[in-house]
Amino acid sequence: MLSTVCRLAWGTLALPAGESLGLPIAALGVFVTAFYAGYVLSNIFGGVATDRFGGRITLTASLLGLAVATFCFGFTPSLFVGLVLQCLMGLTAGADYAAGVKLVSTWFAKTERGRAVGLLMSASSIAVIVTNAVLPGLVANLGWRHTYHLLGAAALILAAIVAVCVRNRAVEAPTGPIQRPPLRTLFTRNFLLLSIAGCGAFWGTLGFASWAISLMVKGYHLSPVSAGIVVAIAGAAGLVSKPSVGWLSDRLGGRRKALTIASLLFFCATLLVFGQLSSLDAFTIAAPFIGVGAFVYSPLLVTLVAEQSGIDRSGSAAGIANAIWQSGSAISPAIVGFIFQISHSFSMAFAALALGPLLGAICMLFIKEHAHH
Rank of each mutant, 00 (worst) to 15 (best):
S210D: 02
S263V: 13
L248E: 08
G207R: 01
A236W: 00
G253M: 12
P224Q: 00
S249V: 14
A262E: 12
V240C: 04
S249D: 14
V225Q: 02
L206Q: 14
A236V: 06
L215A: 09
G219Y: 12
V245M: 13
L272K: 06
G275C: 14
W247T: 09
R251A: 10
A237I: 00
F208Q: 00
T205M: 14
I213M: 05
V273N: 06
L252Q: 14
S223P: 04
T260W: 05
L259F: 11
S214H: 06
L264Q: 15
S210V: 01
L239A: 06
W247C: 04
L265D: 09
L264W: 13
L222N: 05
V217L: 13
L259M: 14
V240D: 00
I233W: 03
M216T: 07
V231H: 00
L215G: 04
W211N: 03
V217T: 09
R255F: 15
D250W: 07
F266M: 11
P224L: 00
S249M: 13
M216K: 06
L252Y: 14
T270I: 07
G253Y: 11
C268D: 09
L271V: 05
F266N: 07
I233Y: 03
A232D: 01
S241C: 10
I261A: 15
S223D: 10
K242T: 01
K257T: 08
H221Y: 13
W247V: 05
L239K: 05
G204E: 07
S249T: 15
I233S: 02
K242Q: 10
K257S: 10
S226W: 01
F267T: 10
L272R: 08
I233V: 09
P243N: 11
T205P: 12
A212Y: 03
D250K: 07
R255I: 13
L264V: 11
V245E: 05
D250Q: 09
V217P: 04
G235V: 02
G246W: 07
A262L: 14
S214W: 05
G275S: 13
M216I: 03
W211H: 04
M216P: 05
S244D: 03
T205H: 12
A232F: 08
A236R: 02
P224G: 01
L252V: 10
K257V: 10
G235E: 01
I261L: 15
T205V: 12
M216C: 08
I261M: 14
F208C: 02
W211V: 02
K257D: 09
P243L: 04
G275E: 13
F267A: 14
W247A: 05
R256I: 11
